[in-house]
Write a protein that binds this DNA or RNA. Structure first.
Lengths: 189, 189
DNA sequence: TTATAATAATAACGAACGTTAAGTAAAGGA
DNA sequence: TCCTTTACTTAACGTTCGTTATTATTATAA
């Protein structure tokens, strides 16, 4: 009911609606009804519908990505990646929905080109980051690049399964799959 | 201009619009403008917007999936999966867009629950089908299930890359990644 | 030729959309 | 006390949406 409160509640309801019905399927009226406020209050806190959507992607989504990326404490590389994926399972419902929305924009299923460009920047940093992480373990291997690519591809699918399809992935299944890809260099760890 | 023609042209324009703007972002008026016909002509051939969308998914999308699935002519398993993915690159533009739309529904990014259920049926058949395909090659291996799962996950990402993100995946990159996952049982081939 | 069916367009319907103008209620500082 | 700012509502705006009633044109078959 008080100041900051309502603004936040609007954003949370917006995430839910954008998630369920997409940008065009979401109406300001439905959001207002959900948070039990009048329609113009949304325009009181956000310039318009697009700004509300953009704030969710640009602030909330990237906040989650960066938090995930800062989890770096590696001893065993397979443990690390297993944990990296497994912890997505226990993301809060809100974070999961924001993540889902972000993936939707990333796959150009929603949002606009400007947001897409924003994401491309991030994506370009993914492969090099994992290559760096894996460097100590791939130095005795001749297909380093392919292994990094395969791993990143595998991680992507698991992320989609957990976040987008909202499935629970057991820790040992995650570990098994990562091990299969990294088995050729895991001996060096 | 003649009978069957217009109906088909409407569907093709619809695929493009649903793809670009989602179900709610697509308007009958825009489709009509694209095919250069009057607005009610779309209602002449399709009951309403939803039926137009449903026909694309239920008929066109599954047609593509089934065509893909019938490609079974295996001698070498890695060759087979490489070809299976590689040929997605040369899908026609229309087929690619339909495929993309289907994935969108499959990820519950568009469409409704009824369509989702339709897809779940199909998805349940995927893992067993690949397990069957791989059976001759995994009999001397103790983690058969994990390998099948990993492979299917990897295939999914590659499909998304080609069809959804519209990227070209070179044949040798595809083969490399599949080989990494299947290396433990490829010796038996 | 005439009747019938298929293919098309014009114009409009009510409903819902994003957005805003105008005003109210409460709170805080001068 | 009065004034300004903040938080909020009612009511409406212009537009666009999905959809349809009505009518015109063309093709086919009798």
């Amino acid at each position: 009911m008080t100041e900051k409160d309502l603004r936040e509640r609007i954003k949370e309801a917006a995430v839910e609606h954008f998630n369920k019905n997409g940008y065009h399927g979401t109406t300001i009226r439905n959001i207002a009804k959900d948070v039990n406020c009048s329609l113009p209050m949304i325009y009181y806190y956000y310039k318009n519908k697009k700004e509300l959507f953009d704030e969710i992607i640009k602030k909330e989504y990237f906040k989650i990505l960066k938090k995930q990326a800062s989890l770096l404490k590696i001893d065993n590389i397979i443990d690390f990646y297993t944990k990296f994926i497994y912890e997505l399972n226990s993301l809060s419902n809100y974070d999961k929905q924001v993540y889902r929305l972000g993936i939707k924009v990333y796959l150009s299923f929603d949002g606009d080109e400007e947001l897409m460009d924003h994401m491309d920047e991030w994506e370009k940093s993914i492969l090099p980051r994992h290559r760096e992480l894996l460097k100590p373990y791939t130095k005795n291997v001749n297909n380093e690049e392919a292994i990094v690519r395969t791993l990143v591809h595998l991680l992507e699918t698991m992320i989609v399964n957990i976040v987008v399809k909202d499935r629970y992935l057991p820790k040992d299944e995650i570990r098994e799959e990562i091990s299969i890809v990294l088995q050729s260099c895991a001996d060096n760890s």
